[in-house]
Design a protein around this nucleic acid. Structure first.
Lengths: 216, 216
DNA sequence: CGCTGTGAATGTATTCACAGCG
DNA sequence: CGCTGTGAATACATTCACAGCG
């Protein structure tokens, strides 16, 4: 939004991730017809504390009314803009395996404005198939396909071994944001952004919590 | 391992998650025939700094030799034990949709000893199908199925709206660890562990980094 | 010597606590 | 009054820097 304050301070990554959670809760509240919400109530729903919420929001401006709280609809749309979700994003999906397919079909993505406009794979058995009318293209066509579709983000759902190569080529072709599912550290150029989802790390930190429970 | 020191100090979650990353790197090094590795080299591969590595390891014991470094094979197997991966884990998968299927087929999980022993869904069209010989059962059979298979962990790949109910019932049936993919906060009893993977949060924090880039 | 292991120092994130506005 | 917004205080994580062992 043009009216948003958009302060340019250093904001922690965890803050931003929490904002995303607040947004979802505000959607629920809006659906339930709630008009205002306090930081206390929001904190309860988000599983955090009120100060955390107010601090997170304060990095971006001032959204509440003292004495009453936040207008649900306003706050939600402000957060939407802060997160850069008040527009559509064109996404290229690399890797048309099971994981790629699950991501492609994930309804939540489309709901937040992420549109898969290109699918790439190296498997000749996959190339030429299409998913919901989007043709799976070979890796050779990468640059042309990105240019033609105007993809801005890429989801990497390839084997770990090839992830870095994929990112390098796509970054060179102008992709600015990468969501990497390959369980391997990858580097991106400084002008690009990267998030990694490592599913094995999640399971392994879970078993850490449970290891050697001889007691009840 | 029985010789492991297994110190009982408060260890940060990020430390544990990094350990999981070190483990993967050590596997690679072992495969390449490397016998020893220094914290400096490991840091380089992991994208962190040597002190971080030494500190992370120091929470669990002392694994290196001053002057030379760490024996790759030893360190790897020690970390394996620390993470609780030196045994098999029986996993129940709830939700046989696209995401559930992708998780089920994810080779990395099996490689680390996570075995899906039960699959549950509520869709009558899914119930009775089988994946790799594992029959998809209805939610009504939940308790019996968990008891019969001895599942210890659960992967929640259901819609957000039902996630809490699923977790409640499964926790009551004795599941101690949950990996939740539903984009909703869920609570687990104090004796159970929980990790959440929220795919939309990842994409949304990515677009945050890229929002309003008018400059080049 | 070289590299680990670790207390001490620094840097970040979270929480407190209260001034101030509606 | 009630609840936000925020500087100050606390808690936590990372990095430094060096003593000490192989």
């Amino acid at each position: 939004v043009s009216s948003g304050p958009a302060v340019r301070a250093r904001v922690s990554d965890s803050s931003v991730r929490r904002l995303s959670g607040y947004h979802r809760i505000l959607e629920d509240l809006e659906r339930q017809g709630q008009e205002v919400v306090s930081s206390a109530r929001l904190a309860e729903l988000a599983g955090t504390n009120p100060a955390q919420i107010r601090k997170d929001l304060s990095y971006f401006g001032t959204f509440g009314k003292r004495g009453s709280g936040y207008r649900v609809e306003d706050l939600r749309s402000q957060i939407l803009a802060i997160l850069g979700l008040n527009r559509q994003w064109k996404v290229a999906l690399v890797g048309a395996g099971n994981l790629g397919h699950a991501i492609f079909s994930y309804k939540e993505f489309a709901r937040y404005g992420f549109n898969v406009v290109a699918i790439l794979d190296i498997d000749p058995g996959k190339i030429g198939q299409n998913w919901d009318g989007i043709r799976i293209c070979g890796w050779d066509d990468c640059d042309a396909l990105l240019a033609a579709t105007g993809a801005e983000l890429a989801v990497i759902a390839t084997p770990a071994a090839v992830a870095q190569g994929v990112v390098d080529r796509m970054a060179k072709a102008g992709i600015r944001g990468f969501l990497n599912f390959a369980p391997r550290k990858v580097d991106v150029p400084p002008e690009a952004a990267l998030r990694t989802v490592n599913l094995t790390i999640e399971l392994e930190s879970l078993t850490f919590d449970l290891r050697d429970w001889g007691r009840s």
